[in-house]
Amino acid sequence: MAPRATVAVAYDCLFPYSTGGGERQYRAFADAIGTAGLDVDYLTSVQWDGPVPAEERFRIVPVSARLSLYTADGVRRIPAALRYAAGLFRELRRRRSRYAAVIVSGLPIFNVFAARLALWGSGTRLVVDYLEVWHRRQWVEYSGAVTGTIAWILQRAAIAMTPLATCHSQLSASRLRREGLRSSPLVSPGLIDAAVETPPTTPASRPPYVLYAGRHIPDKRVETLPAAVAEARTAIPDLRLVILGTGPSTPQVRAEVDRVGGAEWTEFPGFVSDAELDTLLHGALCLINPSRREGYGLVVVEANAHGTPVVLVADEGNAATELVDDGVNGIVAPRTSPTDLARAIRAVADGGDDLRRSARAWYDTAVGTRTIRRTVEGILSALQLPTSPAPRIMKEDTP
């Protein structure tokens, strides 16, 4: 019998040891590839105390020590990105004959150079997964004129040397082509985790509340929410605001709450458990996310799974709006002004239970076609790797 092929998934974070959309996505990739009957190594940094944890569908391979990933302003730290890339290069160089394919995240961009150089001439197939693709102005706004311009040039170089690119929105696909990709990107059908079970849709909780869930960083524009909810309360007097997460923008968000007199109707639970998040999602009038940029829009899927509509904001960098059918599973506001966001919140309230049922119906349709499993099947098919559903528990790594 031919030996089972081994695939590596490379990302510097791993859920649940750290949280975020990328962490959840790449863990789900590893689970799905393992379920398809391949051996999987997850190449990451240390994010736990004690021995390397054991996972059922894949093997965790630490390639760097614990990293401090973000600055106080929520910007990715270049030294941390370089340390992970160096560790990734060493591990892939040492085991270049082990892997049939490597799937590496295109963010941070140094990962692409590390994997490409380490695997050069080995015959190992390389897939670069682009969560987002930024144009020059976005990089400059994020990192400053000099660093941002250098990052944009490096991104273009990485895209040019990418043999097989995957992405998760038409926005990212068009940007990949514009930034110099030499082949057609593989656009995934979606990133829904079909294994997640949610209870039947119910009416929104009383009193109603608007929910935000995520980090507090400038791109998320969380500070726009207190004024929007204050204006929406003129039509929905008992409306509340629940803001999950924390981050460098938290002081600004709290200052906005105080400015609009919202202390009595705003809650800051911080980061909560998955069970608490599910409960809050299930009862929310809507999940509101005024972010200026999203590479996919997992928040839409997670909210709609509970029958909870979403409120997003139109922006050239926000691919999440591709998932919203206005008036079916949410509302897309044209801007982040209090009036525009309040109007969207009121539209959700006016939609009532009918909108909640249609949001859940959107999810029930999407979960059959827009799943992580379908995305992984597409990647493995493009790589021409033999698969057979043979899930098993991963044992201790053998060099």
Rank of each mutant, 00 (worst) to 15 (best):
A195L: 13
A195W: 07
A195I: 03
A195K: 12
A195G: 15
E197I: 14
T198F: 05
T198K: 00
T198V: 12
T198Q: 05
P199Q: 02
P199E: 05
P199W: 06
P199R: 14
P200Y: 04
P200Q: 15
P200D: 05
T201I: 10
T201P: 07
T202K: 10
T202W: 09
T202R: 10
P203T: 00
P203F: 13
P203G: 12
A204F: 03
A204C: 04
S205V: 10
S205A: 04
R206S: 14
R206P: 07
R206W: 07
R206Y: 13
P207R: 05
P207N: 10
P207A: 00
P207I: 03
P208N: 02
P208G: 01
P208T: 08
P208F: 13
Y209F: 15
Y209H: 00
Y209S: 04
V210I: 11
V210D: 11
V210C: 11
L211T: 06
L211N: 07
L211P: 10
Y212V: 13
Y212S: 15
Y212I: 11
G214Y: 08
R215A: 15
R215W: 02
R215Y: 12
H216V: 02
H216P: 04
H216W: 09
P218L: 00
P218E: 02
P218K: 00
D219V: 14
R221A: 08
V222N: 06
V222R: 02
E223Y: 15
E223H: 14
E223G: 12
E223K: 11
T224H: 07
T224A: 02
T224D: 08
P226V: 10
P226F: 02
P226R: 07
A227E: 08
A227Q: 06
A227K: 00
A228I: 08
V229D: 01
V229T: 03
V229P: 07
V229E: 00
V229I: 09
A230E: 09
A230Y: 03
A230Q: 13
A230F: 10
E231W: 02
A232T: 06
A232K: 08
R233Y: 08
R233V: 12
R233F: 03
R233G: 11
T234C: 10
T234L: 03
T234P: 02
A235P: 11
A235C: 06
A235R: 13
A235N: 05
A235Y: 09
I236W: 06
I236N: 14
I236F: 01
P237Q: 02
P237L: 00
P237V: 01
D238E: 15
D238T: 11
R240Y: 15
L241Y: 06
